[in-house]
Design a protein around this nucleic acid. Structure first.
Lengths: 185, 185
DNA sequence: GTCTATATGGAGATAGAC
DNA sequence: GTCTATCTCCATATAGAC
């Protein structure tokens, strides 16, 4: 982070990594200051609402990224099977093959859940419904499609939990491969 | 909690619920004092190591419970299919049909992970291996057995994440049912 | 927009009377 | 074994100079 002049938009990805590594409570302003290279003055200039606003901004950025790279392609596609396959690879990359956790999932299990209920719920609801839409386009009926979509998102989240817990990223890759197989079966 | 005399052993389940609800950092000593009915003096009498010792004791108690109610029955059984089915129902009950989260999973995604790495890893490793043992006894080869076991534990954890995130416990029940089907297929 | 200095609160933890 | 009083520290947040 350059000491000279910063923009809000390039602070957010740094914040995202800090929250992923340290959690919401663990991400103290001094750590944030250190890793962004910004003093408290600048941080409160960009985020007058403090840490809560920082986390909300991060969740928003995540939502935008998933909307652009995951959800929309699933909804708007001519070839849904290719889109599903693309999703699996994009997700594997996004989570660094299991070395990076899902911040939204982590927040869901944390007590900060109550402060971000809507953003957390929407993230998973949108993922489920976009994937179900692609599966319906691919020929499944509504019931099958939503069951399959739910299962896949469950496997992704569970895979991230176990990969982190066991210190074994390869577990996440196996989970993604299996999820892809089931979605395309 | 009776104000009169407490025992360490009956404080621990209360602590477990507090950590589940509030997370490690969110569980302040004042909240703990309030919900256990004990002053800091008593708490430090039972847990000289403070919050860290409290959490370690909780993780130990969880480990013992799973060893007794889940892992051992899976390993020692004549009828592995019945044991697997029992596991699914015990797990559903334990997590209150999806209304209760898994503290170990939550810790795995939190920054406290680093303080409890071993206990977290063992919890999932033991679960995987006990379930895989039952599956081998039931006739699967080693590779299949460990893949199926891993998948099931993944679904349980993912199911808990999504159920909490979406505020929909029924999602967890569906995930458990599906996991059971796969294990017994 | 950035910094430093500071206010204020609550955290974890300890001491010692009962 | 329990309590209350107290200590220290670091958290978030603010103020105001540059």
């Amino acid at each position: 982070m350059a000491k000279t002049v910063a923009e809000r938009s390039d602070v957010i990805p740094v914040l995202a990594e800090i929250f992923r590594e340290c959690g919401f409570e663990g991400a103290s302003l001094s750590i944030i200051g250190e890793k962004t290279g910004l003093g408290k003055g600048s941080l409160y200039h960009f985020f007058p609402g403090g840490k809560e606003e920082m986390a909300a901004a991060v969740l928003n950025e995540i939502d935008t990224w998933f909307e652009d790279h995951i959800y929309r392609p699933l909804r708007e596609v001519e070839n849904p099977r290719a889109a599903i396959s693309e999703m699996c690879h994009a997700v594997t990359d996004y989570f660094h093959s299991g070395r990076r956790i899902c911040l939204v999932g982590a927040f869901a299990l944390d007590n900060v859940r109550d402060r971000f209920t809507d953003q957390i719920r929407d993230y998973f609801a949108d993922w489920n419904s976009a994937l179900a839409a692609a599966l319906q386009t691919a020929g499944h009926n509504e019931t099958e499609a939503s069951a399959l979509a739910e299962e896949a998102v469950i496997s992704i989240q569970g895979g991230l939990v176990l990969a982190r817990a066991l210190g074994d990223p390869s577990l996440f890759k196996r989970a993604m491969k299996k999820a892809e197989e089931r979605l395309l079966a």
